[in-house]
Structure formats: structure tokens, C-alpha cells
Design a binder for these strands. Sequence first.
DNA 1: CGACAACTACCGGAATTCAGGTAGTTTTTA
DNA 2: TAAAAACTACCTGAATTCCGGTAGTTGTCG
Lengths: 210, 210
Amino acid sequence: MRISILLVDDHPLVGDGIKTMLAGENSMEVIGVCKSGAETLEFIRKKSPDVVLQDINLPDENGLVLCGQIKQHDERIKIIGLTSANEAGIVTDFLARGGSGYLLKNVDRKELIEAIRTVYGGKVYLSREASDKVMEQIHGNNSMQPVIILTRREKQILELLAEGMKGPKIAEHLHLSTLTVETHRKNLFRKLNVSNVQLLLRIAHEKRLI
Amino acid sequence: MRISILLVDDHPLVGDGIKTMLAGENSMEVIGVCKSGAETLEFIRKKSPDVVLQDINLPDENGLVLCGQIKQHDERIKIIGLTSANEAGIVTDFLARGGSGYLLKNVDRKELIEAIRTVYGGKVYLSREASDKVMEQIHGNNSMQPVIILTRREKQILELLAEGMKGPKIAEHLHLSTLTVETHRKNLFRKLNVSNVQLLLRIAHEKRLI
DNA sequence: CGACAACTACCGGAATTCAGGTAGTTTTTA
DNA sequence: TAAAAACTACCTGAATTCCGGTAGTTGTCG
């Protein structure tokens, strides 16, 4: 059985390049090329590839979302993300959505084939460069700012806010006055420099405080 | 130069097991064993290991947070997570915090050494089982519920809410009435079965709608 | 074309957030 | 042991959310 592959990329050059790379490899077979998210979803409703090689920058839809949609349709399909050089901080997000691998577009034939084999075998393949991106992301995130330190109570309240609890509920839960909780919340706002709970949680996530 | 390794695990058996496994490997050296997060942070202030083998279940602190703290202290330290069999859905989170590898505790000697070599070389190593966990996580998340479909506007508003914008701001941004935005928001609440924006964003993230 | 979904907009009212403070008590830590 | 930080609690008032509806106007698709 040859490994069936679906290419998703709106840029013809990349599609051709990949196709050429795989042409000599008779254990793999490109069964289709799609240029958009919609086209891809339509395609996989008819044929299920083993592996999808998917560009992250698509014309009609966010590539990360598409990844999730493909996995939702058929959990067995393995997905490898392709990205140009100048993006960062998407790798973990892509994995979280069910992606199995991540490559930069300057990948060589050898690595491409290794990556496909690896994900087909059920493991995760990240290119060295993709690993670096993860590091950059982490590094970039906390080398700029002076490291935010939250107190125990603040962490606690931040977590409860993240659970979806609101002020009064948290107060009840921790046996505190509502007003006290609001004070802590306010201090969190100040420390993370935000003005509402949504942003607080967003930034807290970015800074990996929760 | 031998690869220096710090073990972090409160369970002596695991620590001993790992130590024994690595004893025969003269390219690696265990330079310390810590039993808690606090102890770990203290240790790395004095000595910087190349690789940290870290249990996720620690007595005093969340292992994921500790991972972030270690990377914050010294970005060059590579961290491999260790976990018992019954946990899931932490792998990507661990990577997002700067972890470089993930193993189950029933790992054998060969894989352990390969994992250490891999992360020391700057790449990511996930055990087959860890990869499976990622899949389980994804699969478990969307196989239960009937797949939630959001309209274009709803997605749009969901994303703006995720950016931290509030009702009136969104209305302005989309040239809509505040009341209209509130209607959409209400519909989002209904579809995702939540009662406030925090929860909405939380659930939306879980279901990978944003 | 007719039905159905989506998009738009509105009302009233209770609950909660958010801004900008002050201030006393306990805990940590240098 | 002092000083600093954390924790607690309070105030006022405007802004916003959230709940429960209703309802007219597009689209869209069989």
C-alpha cells in the first residue's frame, strides 16, 4: 500500500515542487492538490488521504482552523503543516489542533520523505527549524518584559477567572468578600496592563501564566 | 563533554530507575535529583543542566508552570516531561511552555537515551504514546458533541471577543448596532451553552473554534 | 417560490464590571 | 526587627453584560 497524500497550497510552485520531490518515491502517491480550505474539505469528503501536506497561509481560511476541521472529519488523517520562513509561534497551536508535523518550505527531499513516513507511522515530526520557532516563541515572549510575578492569591483568582467564574462566585468559592476579589482582579489588570477579564486571560495565556 | 542531566521527581523509585538506566551511558551524567518545584528552581540557580527530566505531577507546584519557569531562567536548558499512564492533553501545553520532549514513565532505556540525545540536539522528541495522547485529546474533544456550526458573523464576533474587545467596541468596528452585537453574542452563548464571555472563549478554545 | 437560516435591531431590568481610589492586618524577607 | 509585600475590605458611580424576549429584512437553497 502506497501512502496517499493530499497537497493543500494555493501557490502552484510549491505544489509542483513537492510533487516533483515525491515523484521518485514509489511508496507515496499524491492523490490530489487543493488550493483552498473549501476545496480541501470537499475533497476529503470523497477521498481520504493518509497524509495531508498543508500550507498554513490559505486564501479563504485560516490554515489552523482547516487543520482542526480535517481532523474532525477523519481523525486518522495525519497532517503536516508547511510554512514560509517568516512565521513563528504557530507550531504548538498547529499540534494542539491535531497536526502531526511541521516543516518549513525550504525542506529538502530527504526530510520531506522522512517527515511523511514519521507521521504516517503515528509519530510527530518537527523540523529542526520548526523546533527553533517554538523556542523563539517562548524566548521572545519573556525576554522582552521584566517577568511578571503574580502572588498566590492572584494566581488563584486568575485561574478561577479562566474557568469562567465571575467575581461574586469566586468570592464565595474562596470565602472572601466580593470587594476583595475585585481588588485582586484590579491588581491583575495593573500587572498585565489590561482593562478587562477577556484581555487578562488572553495575555495571561500568551505569557503562559495559566 | 558529557550531557548533564537533572532529574525532577518526587517518587524515589522513578528517580532510581532513570539513574540506573543512565548509569551505563558514559556520555550522560546525572548531576542532581530534585523532589519539588522549589528545590528545582533553587538547584538551577547554582548549576545549569543541559537537560531536565521532569515529572509533571509534583507535590508543590504544577509541573507545566515549573517547565515555564525553568525556561525563563535559562532558555538553553532542554526539558523532557515524564508522565504516568493516565494523563492526557498536557503534551501540547507542555511544548507550548518550552518543553522539548515528552515520555511516559514506562519508557525503556533505548528510548530514554534517544530522547535525551534528540532534545540535546535541539529537536523535539515525543514518544509514540505521547503522540497518541495528543490524538486522544483531539479526538475526545470533538467526537462527543454534534459539531457546533457558527455563522460567519458569529465567528467574526467570537474572534473580536477573543481579542479582548467588548460589545460596543465591536459594534463600532463592524459598523453595527451595539444591540445587534449583543444578539450575536447571545446566540454564541446559546450554541456553546455558556453564560458569559470568559466561558465562551474558554470553550471555543477547547473546541478549537478560534 | 417558499421555507429556513442568518442578519439586523430593539426593550426592560437586574447583575456585574471597571476605574480610581483608601486603609487596616498579616506575612515575608532582607 | 523593620520595611516591603501581600491580603483583606470598603466606597462611588458610570459602563457594560447578561437574560428574557420580539421582529423586520435579507439571503440561500431545494
